[in-house]
Design a protein around this nucleic acid. Structure first.
Lengths: 247, 247
DNA sequence: CGCCTATTTGATCTGATTCAAACAATGTGG
DNA sequence: CCACATTGTTTGAATCAGATCAAATAGGCG
């Protein structure tokens, strides 16, 4: 086996460095991971409900989401994923998928065989902790979404999501001050927030009316970050790590 | 340090044995954990939002829940916990609580110092995997709840929850055929399902009208398991491990 | 330009909430 | 062992946030 260094590993290293401090040895080991990079089109499934994947995927570029489909075709989006995320890390320890993961725009994805990850984590317990930690942060985001879905009004949910995305995208350098590209349709936002597309549209307009945001095409810009956080009842604590909070 | 065997460790061992096979060595190590057992009253917090706990809790007896409070006092319950669960295992790798965990009825709880768990998991990588796996199953339950909160009608949500509790309680031997004790008020069910107590009440009556369940006081009995699963759109796959499925 | 998809607008409907009050169950102390 | 307090369940009526349905407009792009 050729243990050459893989340039696609660097987003992974950057991600883990946000979760923990890495030794040179650990970085070295990460670089050795046999990553297979693939380009995917928009609206393609990466893994599908009921699959038994033998590899995990690392999102290098683009936007993806985790979702479940109901029998009648309705959909609940469970999370959005941005570059640096490993959306199906769960499959490393839960063999059967109970949901799907799909792209929302054209994406670059790196696949990592489960076996390599198992080997890596066995020999590097601190890396294992960091990956575990990553799945726990995912869970913390689920919890925050549950609060929104269960107990918050539509307007609050929309504002909250826009806040969350700003903070997360900023952490990976995909923001321009308080603006970012939101490559997601309103119908997709609706599927994430448990609303209808029509209602998301109206509430987005409300937020514009209050001069909290501007939204032209896919370009979202936060006019009033304080105000948007207030309306969205947004407290970034749940996103960890705390040193990356937006001013 | 006195390494005496702790009898409260056996629920923990039983729990992990549902997740993985344990060697004698691993069981032995688990028995050595310094558990501190405490009795708690109903409606007491075990850990609170913003806390920085130095120990994890293992629920030995009773019913607990994970929840978040909104500013206006509304509450979203994020999960119910039954004997054998370690509801705040997350705190092992995420130091600050972003939600609270409280008892719903009088409980027996065992506390395990983080330090002991860290030591244990460092020397027993397979146990570390099993604990990780446990937090992943938690996350799978969150996802299923999100689907309910976002996309399912009240009646479906109620039926689904009753199904989930039957399967989970059965796995720890707390059912009597298709009946179990549901020591939870309708208001608490409402906080879990994102509904009001009144609406939960009406839908519970609907389920009784359809002869799917009976409910007298805290005693729930599933009359028609097939039917309840159908109404609740319940598929236990997400609960893992699959060998414990209810016939 | 013309096609396709996404956003926007309007009118109407409904599941769930809200508010309020009655009722049942459980427990407590006298 | 009963009177009373407390908490949980049940019922009814009015209201509302968000859904649904349908059609118009606006972008993007080959």
């Amino acid at each position: 086996m050729n243990a050459s260094r893989n340039p696609a590993a660097s987003p992974l290293i950057r991600k883990l460095e946000r979760l923990t401090d890495l030794s040179d040895d650990e970085k070295q080991a990460l670089t050795m991971l046999p990553l297979t990079v693939r380009a995917l089109e928009a609206d393609q499934d990466i893994v599908r409900d009921k699959d038994r994947p033998s590899q995990c995927c690392l999102l290098l570029e683009g936007f993806a989401c985790r979702y479940k489909l109901l029998d009648d075709g309705r959909r609940q989006i469970l999370s959005f994923h941005i570059p640096g995320d490993i959306p199906d890390l769960r499959s490393l320890h839960l063999p059967v998928m109970d949901h799907s993961i799909g792209t929302l725009v054209p994406c670059q994805v790196a696949f990592i065989p489960h076996q390599s990850l198992h080997d890596l984590l066995l020999h590097h317990p601190r890396l294992a902790q960091a990956f575990w930690r990553d799945t726990l942060i995912d869970a913390a985001i689920f919890c925050e979404w549950m609060v929104g879905l269960g107990r918050r009004r539509a307007q609050v949910r929309v504002a909250h999501l826009l806040c969350e995305l700003l903070v997360r995208l900023r952490a990976v350098g995909l923001t321009d001050d308080h603006a970012y590209k939101l490559p997601v349709t309103q119908a997709e936002i609706a599927d994430a927030l448990g609303l209808t597309g029509v209602h998301v549209n109206r509430n987005l307009q409300e937020l514009r009316g209050k001069r909290l945001i501007t939204l032209r095409g896919r370009a979202l810009s936060v006019q009033d970050w304080e105000g948007l956080q207030r309306v969205g009842e947004f407290d970034p604590t749940y996103l960890y790590p705390w040193d990356k909070a937006v001013a």
